[in-house]
Design a protein around this nucleic acid. Sequence first.
DNA 1: CCCCCTGTGACAGGGCTGTGACAGTCGGCG
DNA 2: CGCCGACTGTCACAGCCCTGTCACAGGGGG
Lengths: 228, 228
Amino acid sequence: MAHVPFLLLIEDDDAIRTALELSLSRQGHRVVTAATGEDGLKLLREQRPDLIVLDVMLPGIDGFEVCRRIRRTDQLPIILLTARNDDIDVVVGLESGADDYVVKPVQGRVLDARIRAVLRRGERESSDSATFGSLVIDRSAMTVTKNGEDLQLTPTELRLLLELSRRPGQALSRQQLLRLVWEHDYLGDSRLVDACVQRLRAKVEDVPSSPTLIRTVRGVGYRLDTPQ
Amino acid sequence: MAHVPFLLLIEDDDAIRTALELSLSRQGHRVVTAATGEDGLKLLREQRPDLIVLDVMLPGIDGFEVCRRIRRTDQLPIILLTARNDDIDVVVGLESGADDYVVKPVQGRVLDARIRAVLRRGERESSDSATFGSLVIDRSAMTVTKNGEDLQLTPTELRLLLELSRRPGQALSRQQLLRLVWEHDYLGDSRLVDACVQRLRAKVEDVPSSPTLIRTVRGVGYRLDTPQ
DNA sequence: CCCCCTGTGACAGGGCTGTGACAGTCGGCG
DNA sequence: CGCCGACTGTCACAGCCCTGTCACAGGGGG
């Protein structure tokens, strides 16, 4: 991950706060902490973290309420942290807008795994695209652009490119491609895959006669590479 | 929200599967079930659910592996379900791409709350109004205006436009649209979606014959774009 | 009761796709 | 080093699939 996750930890117990801060820092996060809900809300506005780990039992306004207040204006991920393993609490917590609910005591790496899962979810939903050289494949919009301009791929060309792009750098046999893209097990010798690759190269490659993206693997099939 | 969540439950234990299916149905979800990983993967491709609840202990390929396979091609939310409350398992599970990890036995409403928390993230961005070119969609007033003047959309047209606008720039298949707008899975070949899109375009587009807002994605379906 | 909305099936046009033949290229072996 | 066989690139064309479009009938609400 290029970007170091930036967390805000709100927890009133000094010992737990310090322990978690240390543990999370070790896992490669940047962490700021607050001991009360008020401080936490202030820090949220000042520092704009990527995610909040929020204790439920806080002096003054409790975690649920902090959570609801945050949700009125912000939509960053919130993980609730609590000593009470009560089903009602879980439901209330999640309904006040939290993304996850973790019961103390918690291993640092478990919390870390949950943090990463929540952050990953956000990234997945924000954009699901892959880049190969000047080629950008947007899987949710189902578009392929080269140097910013939209390539008009036909359905089959698009499916072929999508399957290749899901296994970058991996050689796929004609057989595999037939199954993945055409969904039939054709055993005969047809130029079907080659013809489609050719059409795809004509749109995708800078110099279709000497391809740098869709390389042919002699005796096997094709492979999608990221050129130098 | 008008849309009923559509879940795939993969669980081999008949008693638990039936109980959860009943419980989740009562909470207002539409549920399909599978007893093995293989069946689950097949159903996933056929039915395209919104979310998967996946037991870890499965005969044949286990839940972790099912999870990883799904993640190779799909990005829908996955909630792992297990009888073992082992920290290692949680970490492994979340790292194989799951969004949440829930330990059995689980109250139906807790699972429901977690399901909603996971699904909520994808919908949080939809604010009260959205703008696409000269088109303004006001979700709270349920009106659509173009260049300031009110468009008289019929109920179905409005629902279709709302669903599209909640996922701007994202290609939606005809089948997805049927589920979202018409709430039934029609698998046959009907021109229903196309006809409604046509009627919608007639009101929404400047030049209905060359649409700039509701673009067709050949071989897939439609996508709502913000023009230039 | 009447009108508008909706779903359906038919139809046409245009573009996509699969096929087969042929040319070109690569690699191995003598 | 050159030849040969196998493998891949290329192309044109015919059929077909996909989508846009339309008219119509049924149904539901005012």
